[in-house]
Amino acid sequence: MSFQERRSLVNLISSVLITVIYAAYVLPRMPEADPYSKELFHFWGSFFLLLIPVSIVARIIVFIVFYIINTIATREEEPSITDERDKLIELRANRNGFFAFVLGFVIAMASLVMEMPPSTMFIILICSGIASEVISDASEFVYYRRGF
């Protein structure tokens, strides 16, 4: 398995774990208020805003650990350049992830049209964010492994 394949797998697992652990920690603190209350919208706003720095810091830590373990285990250095194949794979993987997120966004909007509570819409947005990351990282892994 190449360095890029291992990196895609670590990316995939870490992005799911970070979001799931964060959601499991924060969601139980959701206020039990009226579904359309200002308090609840404040909670969801801070949920998404806090997820960004938490995710960045957690990923940095995960990747430092990954690079150290990878170097010790394989004695293989990280590729120093990103070549045309890497860029093409990244573009294709991002496109797949983007389609997944757009689909989730449409479903989230549909939930509002069907008069579901706003919390349902936010949960669908979180799920589509995770699905988008999973599809993007899994696509990257498959493109590196099978070619295209």
């Binding site: 190449s2 360095f3 890029q4 590729p79 350049i81 070549d83 045309e84 194949r85 890497d86 590196y144 070619g147």
Partner: peptide
């Protein structure tokens, strides 16, 4: 040629 070894393998 300025690419990674994995690209030559592919």
């Amino acid at each position: 040629v300025g690419v990674t070894r994995q690209t030559i393998v592919a």
